[in-house]
Structure formats: C-alpha cells, structure tokens
C-alpha cells in the first residue's frame, strides 16, 4: 500500500522523538484571542489515536492489537484522573468509524500536529509563525459530536514501540562490537486542546519517554499523561505545574 508523504513525515518525527531518551515536554498556547477555560466546561475526550508495536530483533515493527487497546484505555483513564480535581464535565467520545467526517478530523489533527512538531519542536521554524501560535483545525470540528455541545475537545496521538529481548541483545551486541546504536523503542505522544467553536488549537504539547515508562501499564500511562498535560489550561492555577 502506498503511504502519503505526510504519513512518512509523521513516522520520521515520531522516530526522532523516540530517539530522545528522556522524558521531555514543551507546551504551546494559542496567540489568538482566547478566553481562558472556566470551570464547568464540557470537554470531549476524543478516542486517542494510539498504536503500540513490538520491535523485533531485526527492527521489524509489529503492531499489537491488545497492547494498543490497553494503552488507549490506560491513557483515557489517566486523563480522567489528571483532570478529576476540577469541575469540568468530561465526555468520552469513541470514534464512530462509519462517520467519514470524524475519521477525517482525527487524521487532520494528526497532520496539523505533525506540522506543528516539524516547525516548532524539531526541524525548521516557519518565519510566518515566528511570534505566533495560531494553528487551527477550523470550525469544521463542530461536526465532531455536535449533540455533545462541548466547549473543548482533547485530541491525543500516541505511538509506542517496545523491544523484544532479541532486539535488546542485538542493540547491546552491536554496541559491543562498535557498530553504533540501534533503537530499543520508546514512546511519543502529542495532544491538542481544541476550541469547539473556532477549531483553534488553544494548547499543544509533545512528550516522549524512553523505554523506561510504559503506557501498557496504568502507572506508565499516568506518567506520560502527567507530562503531556503540563500547563494545559484546564487545571486550576494553583495546581499548575
């Protein structure tokens, strides 16, 4: 199957992010006019786009359905926990795969997120975006669960790779004979808080963790979510990191 340039780019960015060994996070907030999120906002938690794979000895990546489901559940539960201290109303929104608009919006978030990454976090800054952060998914986001009447939506894109013992042996072995290093996996994720009226990305963050934390386990997911939700304008100021 042919994959688009964008998918390749997302793949590259995620691999780059996976290479950095330690947990890191930098957040972006919109420079557009934006009224801060008040308490009792209704927030749509869009089914996270997660894909977790097994990294085999030769570097073949095998997607695992069970890990992916587990990771998704853990991430959603961790987000709920992380935001539990506030009075927001959190509405889970499982993706309706028969709804082409919803499928496209999740893809759009993946594409815009990858573009933000490649011009803000890694790669070349855009001169036209030097003093501003005004990315948007557009007002079309209202097509996402219009009946929920949500104020904001939280999108999250995450990829994880976990090395087999053969892969780990390979990495050690190659390092020993002086043939450099190979990846032994890791996790990367980015998330956006989207204003459901304008479609603007009011907050964006990237987090990557090395092979230490593991979103297949509840505590690993909690750690990743804690890092990624840093400075999200949904927590009370006194709780802000």
């Amino acid at each position: 199957m042919k994959k688009g340039f964008l998918i390749q780019r997302v793949g590259l960015i995620v691999s780059l992010a996976l290479l950095s060994a330690c947990t890191s996070a930098r957040t972006m907030q919109t420079t557009n006019e934006f009224k801060a999120v008040e308490n009792k906002a209704r927030i749509l938690l869009i089914e996270p786009d997660v894909e977790l794979s097994f990294l085999k000895a030769a570097g073949v990546r095998e997607v695992r359905a069970d890990w992916t489901r587990q990771g998704k559940e853990n991430i959603l539960a961790s987000i709920r926990d992380a935001l539990a201290g506030n009075e927001h109303e959190l509405v889970n929104h499982p993706l309706d795969t028969n709804n082409a608009r919803e499928v496209q919006l999740v893809k759009l978030h993946e594409a815009v997120g990858a573009t933000i990454l490649s011009h803000r976090f890694i790669g070349v800054p855009l001169p036209s975006k030097e003093d501003k952060f005004d990315w948007s998914l557009g007002p079309g986001v209202r097509d996402m669960a219009p009946e929920a009447n949500a104020d904001y939506a939280l999108f999250l894109f995450a990829r994880g790779q976990y090395a087999s013992s053969g892969r780990q042996a390979m990495a050690v072995g190659l390092a020993v004979v002086g043939l450099g290093t190979v990846s032994t996996g890791g996790q990367a994720a980015y998330a956006s808080l989207v204003d459901m009226v304008s479609g603007d990305i009011v907050w964006f963050n990237l987090a990557s963790t090395g092979s230490g934390t593991d979103m297949r386990k509840p505590e690993g997911a909690a750690e990743l979510v804690k890092v990624i939700l840093k400075d999200v304008p949904l927590t009370d100021a006194k709780e802000g990191a």
Partner: peptide
C-alpha cells in the same frame, strides 16, 4: 487479540476507514 494477525487487522482497519 494477542496475535500478530490481530495487529495486521488493526492496521488494515485503519487504512480501510480512510
């Protein structure tokens, strides 16, 4: 669900949605 086959299906389900 724990099989390599389920992983292939998951990926193809995603491609099919598009």
């Amino acid at each position: 669900e724990t099989s390599d086959e389920a992983g292939l299906w998951l990926q193809m389900d995603g491609a099919e949605r598009l």
